[in-house]
Nucleic acid binder design. Structure first.
Lengths: 177, 177
DNA sequence: ACGGTATACCTCGGCACCGATGTATGGTGC
DNA sequence: GCACCATACATCGGTGCCGAGGTATACCGT
């Protein structure tokens, strides 16, 4: 998730670590903050894997900074991660939102649609959070107001997302024809 | 999150690891599966911390099983984690839903309401995923259909949750009076 | 002069998590 | 007779993540 965000931001423009950090904080920081001690090692990992290069530059304001630039291999890796996300990226909202934030980088509308269809298939599966045996329970069947809240909120999210997915898939199909 | 779920399920009734695993899979598995190799060490951690005890019992079907039972300290720890959740438990939906699934265990309606109010405060903060400088962008201002989707979905979730939170807080206040 | 804050990057220890793999038993299908 | 699956628990190596702490520069207010 973090690596995807790094690759996604750098695909737009080279950045140095500090600005990248602020971009990531804006994207997901209110929900799931990323520590500096997580970001810098992640950058080094990606550098070691040949996905980005660092160039030292005199600091505009303070200490010298390392401008990060995607390599060609880094661009290809971003495309792979966008086009063939792991199942976790599809099911976990945090991961999914990060993926959506950069899905526009995938040039082919058919490839974009294929990813959306995976999410659609996931949302269309009958799934709950609470069961009686194997039978999913609906909000109305629960006495617990907090568990009822979970289902109420999840249902509202699901409805909004299904509507958006169907709309967006329809318009991607129009482009693809 | 995992530890909270373990404590929460065991508070209802003693269980052995395998059944606990299926309970957890039902609760959060469709979004974020938990590996066996994560669950068993987590159980050992909690045992080592004195929050639960394991009792060997001849296996009903197969191998002998370890029935897990919360200690008194385990019950107190659950109450602490429910009443004073870390900020991550409030902001991250995955964590938050797990907390909600067990919030009924917190006996005091005022304490339950205090937790809901922390979530309410978080949701009422103006926050987006995308910014122009410091100004949060609305869905309508975005060209990117995927980023627009993120905001559309997040807004629907937020609305449903705010309505539920206000309803539930009102009824908790009625009980508390 | 000095503290506070923002910029800018880094290391280290500890720990949670995961995939792969191992070890059993017993029931079901072919 | 044998494969397969469900039950039931466990270890191990690798890795990602985090908090705490460290090292600088530069500007602003007092």
């Amino acid at each position: 998730m973090l690596e995807l965000a790094i690759l996604g931001f750098l695909y737009d423009a080279p950045l140095h670590g500090y600005v990248l950090r602020r971009h990531i904080a804006a994207l997901t920081g209110h929900v799931r903050p990323v520590a500096e001690s997580t970001l810098y090692p992640a950058i080094k990992r990606l550098e070691k894997a040949g996905l980005l290069v660092r160039a030292s530059e005199p600091g505009a304001v303070a200490a010298p900074r390392h401008v990060l630039r995607l390599t060609e291999e880094g661009g290809r890796e971003l495309m792979r991660r966008l086009a063939e996300p792991a199942q976790r990226e599809i099911t976990d909202e945090n991961h999914w939102f990060t993926l959506l934030a950069f899905l526009r980088h995938l040039a082919d509308p058919a490839a974009q649609a294929a990813v959306l269809r995976r999410r659609l298939a996931f949302l269309e599966e009958p799934a709950s959070f609470f069961y009686e045996g194997d039978r999913p329970l609906s909000a109305e069947e629960l006495d617990d107001p907090f568990r009822r809240g979970v289902l109420t909120i999840a249902r509202a999210t699901s409805r909004a997302e299904l509507a958006w997915l169907r709309d967006t898939l329809a318009s991607l199909d129009r482009v693809g024809r």
